[in-house]
Write a protein that binds this DNA or RNA. Structure first.
Lengths: 196, 196
DNA sequence: CGGAATCTTGAAAGTGTTCAAATCAAGTGG
DNA sequence: CCACTTGATTTGAACACTTTCAAGATTCCG
């Protein structure tokens, strides 16, 4: 059922803005289905990110190689977007990898198509403005915590905030997302064993 | 000269979008001048942020009290915006302080006025979508560095990226912005004395 | 079963904080 | 313009948090 895959997208759209059913149909039409096997890459450094990716099902990670160490900057599960946004917006080569952690289904839209849609469907521009606003506040909050809290606190908070992700991805990836080593995360878990 | 104060705003607007001179006039009209003495507060925790603030001149800081320690989340100089964005967007009480570090002049617009403007001047919505997009990528980059780089590297990078701010604000504020103690920043400076 | 990926352990080293005191700089009022 | 107070920066020692490295244990999957 094609429409199944589009349900999360439609829900997302209608939650934050008003679209007529005609507009929704146009938008839906513009998003193409993209399936990924486990461990398959959607994007690699050097490539240019030409699409916006909406996760319909599965789980992905966005990460970068700093020095020689992997740092995960985003996870993506149903209802989230994943991207190397800088590459998408500036047309510069990506610096990040996007890889499926599980078999996944994405809905992708090309930058040029979306630009056209902004003109064809004005509420879409508002939708994205609002989306980017919220994404920014989330990122501000995340950054604040990363410099004001200890690793243990950040882990606790991650566990409660993203329980679903915590249960689906290996622990060394969570460590990477939190900016600590897998060994230290293991140590933290041990010393609080009673809690977990 | 009133128009002097508006120049940075106009430049900012016209750099990223196309407005007719009529539209620019309408927008300009909607922004009110707000002057602050040194150390004066624009916003305190508990208050609701009803305005968007554009810095026309001077220098401000946005900070929060974590535990008992001040953490600076943003600086604002000419051409930048400062805010507790979460409060502005959700109408919830602010958690951050906004304080002038120098005598400053801001241009402020009320949320309701801006919402009306989005309808009256459609390109404005696009302007802000693009602004928030860029702000998000900047924040992503900043967060990545805060978890992948050492304090020394972050300081080096801050010095080169924000030379102007570095020269205008006391060092303990830079330490606070970088998420380290003033003592440790002092130590870093000492051990690299030759470089600075 | 066998191999690869993941998770755990412990010791040693590095990075950053805390606290208390000293120094330096910058207004402010007399 | 000096004396004084406050604000800002520096120092050093002890401590806490996190990483590194090397090894071992465990789990997962073909």
């Amino acid at each position: 059922m094609k429409s199944d895959l589009y349900t999360p997208l439609i829900e997302n759209l209608t939650a934050k803005a008003d679209f007529t059913s005609e507009q929704l149909a146009i938008i839906k039409e513009a998003f193409k289905i993209r399936k990924l096997a486990k461990k398959e890459y959607l994007l690699r450094p050097g490539q240019i990110s030409h699409h916006l990716y909406f996760v319909s099902s599965g789980c992905l990670r966005v990460y970068t190689l700093e020095d020689v160490r992997e740092i995960i900057t985003q996870f993506g599960i149903k209802g989230w977007c994943v991207n190397d946004l800088t590459s998408y917006l500036t047309l510069k080569p990506a610096t990040q990898f996007i890889q499926a952690i599980e078999p996944s289904v994405l809905l992708q839209i090309h930058r040029d198509t979306l630009e056209e849609l902004y003109d064809k469907v004005p509420p879409l521009e508002r939708f994205f403005r609002i989306k980017f606003q919220s994404a920014l506040t989330v990122m501000q909050e995340r950054h604040l915590k990363s410099i004001s809290q200890s690793a243990g606190e950040r882990y606790e908070q991650f566990r409660s905030q993203y329980r679903e992700i915590e249960q689906r991805v290996p622990q060394y990836m969570i460590a990477s997302y939190l900016g600590i080593t897998k060994e230290f995360l293991s140590y933290l878990r041990k010393s609080h064993r009673s809690i977990y």
